[in-house]
Computed example of a mutant assay.
Amino acid sequence: MPQVNPLITTPEEQFVVGESDFAFFGNYACRVEGGAILFCRSGSADATVNQYQGQVRRNTMVLLLPGSIFMLTDRTEDFRAAYCSFSRDLFSEAAFRMDPSFFHALRERPISRPPQRIVEGASIWLQMAAYTYRDRGNVFRNTIIKNRLQNLLLESYDKMQRFAARQHRVPETTTRQSELFHRFVALVHEHCAQEREVSFYADKLCISTRYLSTIVRSVAHSSAKEFIDRSVMLEIKMMLQSTDLSVQEIAYRLRFPDQSYLGRFFKKHAGESPTEYRNNKK
């Protein structure tokens, strides 16, 4: 029986609350069009959110921004997570005027294990969200969940900031460099399907390619080109796993010169051809 994506929303159903084993995402990279909050109830799995990897086990929280690529590997049979998924529009309304640094922090650390008092608060929040989800006659249903989502995002940001302050008393990079790096990450997330050259992102940031490379090396411990290429690989893998597009069609969509060029690029980074990767993931 085909697995169903539990995080799907519709124009009529702007948010969905429930509990799932998330088998749909098992060894299957998929883009989350809206966003979601996951709270692990039992079992464990290794999660990939864009370029971030971490273990999810009981009381682990995962926050997925709209457009994130999400996948679970080594998922145990007893893995279960409560969730609230929401449309891109609902998230945009809830996140309106929030400090951009929140989204920077979330991209860096979408998987976390909050302290016990936060675990209790998250459980209560999900119970309230589930109550609102079931209350279909409530004409203010979407407004209520939007306000609750905003409250949760603000609470999460506050706790993430406190944790970061305790863990990193002395910043390794300047505020200016950190801001440029976060803007670079956002640009790569938005444009990597079409743009793979460092110069494109340097121009967008109005800095030299050399300075951008220095910043990325300092923060991410890799070159800017390597960072871009990893994002492109995520896009290719997602298309290979989540669509029936041919390798030639994927090459066209990602603006590779031809299928052979994409094949060489993929094999260089993955150690196997796109077709081999697709077959191995079936």
Rank of each mutant, 00 (worst) to 15 (best):
3 Q>M: 09
5 N>V: 05
9 T>A: 05
13 E>P: 00
15 F>E: 06
16 V>H: 10
16 V>W: 05
19 E>D: 09
20 S>L: 04
22 F>R: 03
22 F>S: 08
26 G>K: 10
27 N>Q: 13
28 Y>E: 06
29 A>K: 10
30 C>V: 13
30 C>I: 02
30 C>W: 04
30 C>L: 07
32 V>T: 13
33 E>S: 12
35 G>Y: 07
35 G>Q: 02
35 G>P: 01
37 I>K: 02
37 I>V: 14
38 L>C: 08
40 C>W: 01
41 R>T: 02
42 S>L: 03
43 G>P: 01
43 G>H: 02
43 G>E: 03
44 S>M: 09
47 A>V: 07
49 V>Y: 00
52 Y>V: 07
61 M>C: 10
72 L>E: 04
73 T>N: 07
74 D>N: 14
75 R>W: 06
76 T>V: 04
76 T>N: 05
77 E>R: 12
77 E>K: 11
77 E>T: 10
80 R>M: 11
80 R>I: 03
81 A>R: 03
82 A>H: 07
84 C>Q: 05
85 S>R: 03
85 S>D: 05
87 S>R: 01
88 R>E: 12
89 D>I: 09
91 F>P: 03
92 S>T: 12
92 S>D: 14
94 A>D: 07
96 F>A: 12
98 M>Y: 06
100 P>L: 05
101 S>F: 09
102 F>C: 08
103 F>H: 09
103 F>L: 12
108 E>W: 08
112 S>G: 08
116 Q>D: 14
121 G>V: 04
127 Q>I: 02
127 Q>A: 13
130 A>Q: 13
131 Y>F: 11
132 T>K: 05
132 T>C: 11
134 R>D: 12
134 R>K: 15
136 R>K: 14
137 G>M: 10
138 N>M: 11
138 N>Q: 09
139 V>R: 06
141 R>E: 13
145 I>R: 03
146 K>Q: 15
150 Q>I: 05
151 N>Y: 12
154 L>F: 11
160 M>W: 04
160 M>A: 11
163 F>A: 11
168 H>S: 12
171 P>H: 03
172 E>P: 05
173 T>W: 01
174 T>Y: 01
176 R>W: 00
176 R>E: 05
177 Q>Y: 01
177 Q>C: 05
179 E>M: 02
180 L>P: 01
181 F>A: 02
186 A>V: 00
193 A>Y: 10
194 Q>F: 12
198 V>K: 00
199 S>C: 02
203 D>A: 15
203 D>S: 14
203 D>M: 10
204 K>E: 15
205 L>R: 03
208 S>G: 14
210 R>S: 04
213 S>C: 00
214 T>Q: 10
217 R>I: 00
218 S>W: 00
220 A>P: 04
223 S>A: 03
229 D>C: 01
230 R>E: 13
231 S>C: 08
231 S>N: 15
235 E>M: 09
238 M>R: 12
239 M>Q: 11
242 S>I: 06
244 D>T: 09
244 D>K: 09
244 D>C: 05
247 V>D: 14
248 Q>S: 15
248 Q>I: 04
248 Q>A: 15
249 E>A: 15
250 I>F: 12
251 A>V: 13
251 A>L: 07
251 A>T: 11
252 Y>M: 13
261 Y>T: 14
262 L>P: 10
265 F>Y: 02
266 F>L: 08
267 K>N: 13
268 K>C: 02
272 E>S: 13
272 E>M: 15
272 E>P: 06
272 E>N: 12
278 R>N: 08
279 N>I: 08
282 K>A: 13
